[in-house]
Nucleic acid binder design. Sequence first.
DNA 1: GATTGTTCTATCTCACGATGAAATACAATA
DNA 2: TATTGTATTTCATCGTGAGATAGAACAATC
Lengths: 292, 292
Amino acid sequence: MHQPSRLQQDLANRIVALVNDDGLAVGALLNENGLARRLAVSRTPVRGALRYLEDQGIVARRPNRGVELVAIPPKAQVAPAEDHDEWLVRIARDQRSGSLPQEITEGEVMRRYGLNRASVQRILSRLAELDMVERKAGYGWRFLAGTRDRATHDESYRFRLLLEPAALLEPGFHLEGAWIEAMRRRHEETLARPWQESSSVAFFEMNADFHEGLAAASNNRFIHAAIRHQNQLRRFSQYDWKFGFERVVVNCREHMEILDHLARNDREVASLLLRRHIERASLIRASGTDPG
Amino acid sequence: MHQPSRLQQDLANRIVALVNDDGLAVGALLNENGLARRLAVSRTPVRGALRYLEDQGIVARRPNRGVELVAIPPKAQVAPAEDHDEWLVRIARDQRSGSLPQEITEGEVMRRYGLNRASVQRILSRLAELDMVERKAGYGWRFLAGTRDRATHDESYRFRLLLEPAALLEPGFHLEGAWIEAMRRRHEETLARPWQESSSVAFFEMNADFHEGLAAASNNRFIHAAIRHQNQLRRFSQYDWKFGFERVVVNCREHMEILDHLARNDREVASLLLRRHIERASLIRASGTDPG
DNA sequence: GATTGTTCTATCTCACGATGAAATACAATA
DNA sequence: TATTGTATTTCATCGTGAGATAGAACAATC
């Protein structure tokens, strides 16, 4: 029983998603060539993914005939094998908590977290893209924590105020009805479920998906990319944020009101509401609770 | 006579700049520790840079006493050793011209351009940040040329329209008088000099510096970063662009009018003019001359 | 004829060691 | 005592080769 590679795990998940999308029933035969074409890879990793699913009892090989679906696969088959993002968050947190020095070498990071050099370089490069760290002149890296978090917060909100409301008014704007519905359900569920500290991350991600989804709907790739970037930045400074439930309620209500107007294609009002929503969020988060 | 390293060349240039800024005269003694502190590196590379300047007859060592300035250093000592950017431009051009296949492996790029793997990975990663290329699932990379260049052009201009005029109205906006003056001079020189095809790149860079300078003056790091990013993108698609001189004249006039208003701190009019300027540029460049 | 099974080649990733350069500590000198 | 000269240590980059995996071609089976 081979350990599946990163790509194979990924493909396994995507195959499960395809099976769901296609509405296949137990007993259906999967086709290696077809899957390979749809997934834009060769047959080899597809076979690896299928072998992995076989180990899990999702499919069964029928020699020379195909691969039969023998169980309805659960939605999130495997945790989407952990990304570098985990490390980004962890390192950013360690730095904020003071357990990492402000200046650091690649080797130190390698030893400290037990990573190989290539991974460390990728991670530090990504942190550099986010302006959380910079290369020192000779060698080593320097955290820019001091300069962030102070003025940055306001600049970020002003930046978003310029883009997000305008996104809804872009000529190419188009939002799928299904997206609106799914998003509304997620908000309702968040409101219905009992609140606990650990919901913070899920709440943050719902929030990020809401704003990113609207930006994506603008069909302007630069607006979309800019908002995605903002979300990444906020992810670092706010994962530790402890939201009070009152704040969650207000936030969801505002989001849902915007969704209502968008469902009726009333983009102008939605844009205004979104502007106010961001302005309010800016004030609340600026009021000092943020532990950043 | 050792060949100076990349860092040492860089430091040599910065030392020359410091000497100029400090207004030091011939005969002044430079101090290794002080330079190392100001340049945020250790003494070792500073010594390398000084040895390099010594070879050029700019300074002379006085054993155990210091390093004496013996000549007024010319402004641009050494061409700032070539960046990866050269390769980005070249590869982007090769791809557009069709001499690169749409899908390509790292190894092919290595062989073709005689680069080592690390460099190729850096270059491809940067192209990926610019959405000019993406990683394929298994291995290899795929150029995204087809999707760019068509709608992208409009989206880019609309994106800039949202940010650049607003940049001038940011609360933290502040523009140095010296910057305005220097920029005005560059524009005057461009208009005065006889125009030739080869001026295209210089004209583009002046243009980019103008827009980026205004974005930087907003003192909003996100606006600044976004515009810098836009400039990088445009650099690839427009380096080959052949500007007619009429267009150059109009462009410079519009820029200078904006500078005039900014010199009087009339930001609102400047913002309006900037909006119109971008709108016009959008139309002209969309009219089909662009060979992208 | 289409699909899976098998084999072979090409490509990437990782680890190791050599090399050159930067950082640091210490000695020498004004 | 401050500054340069010298030696040692630490670090990052580059090249190489082994191992794993993706891609592609061919054979076998229904």
